Structures are given as C-alpha cells and as structure tokens.
Amino acid sequence: MKSPFVAAALACLTALPAAAQDRFAIPVTAQVLPGWVRDDGARVAAVQLSLEPGWKTYWRAPGDAGIPPSFDWSGSRNLHSVAITWPTPQVFDQNGMRSIGYEDELVIPLVLAPTAPGEPIRVRLDMEIGICSDICIPHSLNFDETLAGGDSKPTPAIAAALAQSPYSAQEAGVTAATCRIEPTEDGLRIEARVTAPSAGAHEVMVIEPGLGDVWVSEAQTHRTGGDVIAVSEMIHVEGGAIAVDRSAIRLTVLGSSHAIDIRGCSAG
C-alpha cells in the first residue's frame, strides 16, 4: 500500500519535466527491450532498469522498508494481456529494517499477448518504482514504444532474467504448503508452513495475501527439520474485516541458493 506521504511524493515527481530527471537527480535509466515473438503470437519483451552504484529498487513485495512498484498499461494499443515475471530478488537488512529488491541492473520480462496477433503492439506504460540509497524516493517512468516485427530469436538479457526466476513448488520439491489463520484484535495472524528441501542459508519467507487492501507485516521465518515456517500479521488498511482465500495466497521462500514460488496453501 502507499502511505499518504508516498502518494504525495509520487504526485510531485510525476510533475517533474523529463529534462529534470537526469542521472544526477534520479540515478536510474530505463528502456523497453523489444524481445521476440513466440509461436503462439505473444511477444516476450522486458523493461530494463540500470541503477547507479549504491542504489537499489524493489521487488513486487518490497518489505516494510520498500516502495512497491506499479504498472499502468491503460494507454496501450493492441494489448490484450500482460504477464510479468520477476527475477529472484535479494534481501537487504539495513538499520534494523528489511527490504527486498535489486541492485545494479534489473530486467523484468513481460509476455505481451496482442489482441490482433501479427500486428504491432503499442506499449504505453506508466510505471512507479522506488529507488533507495541513503534515502528512498518514489520515481515515475513513462514509456511509449511500438513493438513490431516477427523475430523469433530470444534476446539474451531477457532469457537470462527468465532463468533467474524462482523455482515452482514442483521444481523445488515442495510436498506441502499450509496456512493456519487465526483472528487477532486488529486483523488476522497467519502461520505459513512449507515442507521442502532447504533453499540455502538465511531462508526468508514472504507472504502475499492476494488482497489489495491488506497490509502484511514482515514474516518471522525459521526452519524446523523439513519445514520452513513463517508467522505474520494481516491488517486491513481501512480497519475492516478480512476475507482470505487460501488459494490466492502466494508464498515465496528466498534462500542463498535459490527461491521457491508457491501458489496457494491448504488449511493448517
């Protein structure tokens, strides 16, 4: 969610002219990689972000210390749907706060399904990201690109980013994923348990509720035998009741050797 402060800062930055967003004021450059066309007619493209040394940006679930990215495709043409693949992020611990994201360079693969296959796709994307060094600031990126041509040869940078995505539950050998949910005074307490081989040292689990208006606290994660266990709190941003669909909950285990993406969990 965006705090009133972040929302106000986003509005201010959006109003800045492009000429003011130079490398010194905003230490990130961005471009759309046109990619290639698959046999099914969908285009595999990407957004590429290059960050100045010492700066980082955030994953889709950035942690309490991060700013979540957002995408607005509403001005695009001949674009039926978009699927985003996130490469495995890093966990940053700084000043007692945890954030999850990327440093140096980030390539975000996109699968763009056209309304009319074989015709050019006009990508008009307004993207909001957070970038952070000693300070963290929101930043607006605006793209207007027409992607045409039928090249079927994969772009190395995009293929590499796809290869860096987390393992699926099946690929990682997950045999069970459960979520025990209990009411609290302010919302809900969730205990997620994933039975799987180790993902490496310093495992961290991220819990995403699949609900847009629910804040989830930083999960306290530990491993007991074959299980990774994480406990977190869920609170509705407007103080209302929360109706959780376990099939929509997304659990990500981040370890030093790999990450695991688990879609849905059963009752614990």
Rank of each mutant, 00 (worst) to 15 (best):
A176L: 15
I207C: 03
A163V: 03
T195E: 08
D213E: 10
T14C: 08
L79H: 10
N142K: 11
R98C: 14
G118F: 02
A9T: 02
F143G: 05
V111G: 02
R189P: 02
A199F: 08
R180T: 07
G54F: 06
G268T: 06
Q220K: 08
S168K: 03
L141K: 11
A148E: 09
G264Y: 12
L51R: 01
Q220M: 03
D144T: 09
P138M: 05
I129E: 01
L16P: 05
D134M: 06
G118D: 11
E119K: 04
S50G: 15
T88L: 09
I249K: 05
W73L: 00
D126T: 14
A61N: 13
V231A: 04
T224S: 15
A9L: 13
T88P: 02
I158F: 03
W55R: 08
E119W: 03
A159D: 15
C136K: 06
A248K: 12
Q90T: 11
V228M: 11
L162K: 14
A7Y: 09
D186L: 04
Q90S: 10
F71G: 06
P138E: 07
L49S: 05
S152D: 10
I158A: 01
Q164G: 07
I235R: 09
I181P: 02
V47M: 02
A7K: 15
V107F: 01
H202C: 06
T85N: 10
S74Y: 05
S165K: 13
G101R: 01
Q164N: 13
A177G: 10
V6K: 03
V228N: 03
D64G: 10
G212S: 09
R124Q: 10
I260E: 02
I158R: 01
T85Q: 12
D144K: 14
L79R: 05
A45S: 08
I121N: 08
R124M: 06
M205C: 08
G149R: 09
Y58M: 00
V228R: 05
T221D: 03
A159C: 11
A148R: 12
L51W: 00
V28K: 01
I190D: 00
I190C: 01
H236M: 00
V206H: 07
T195D: 07
R223Q: 05
T85E: 14
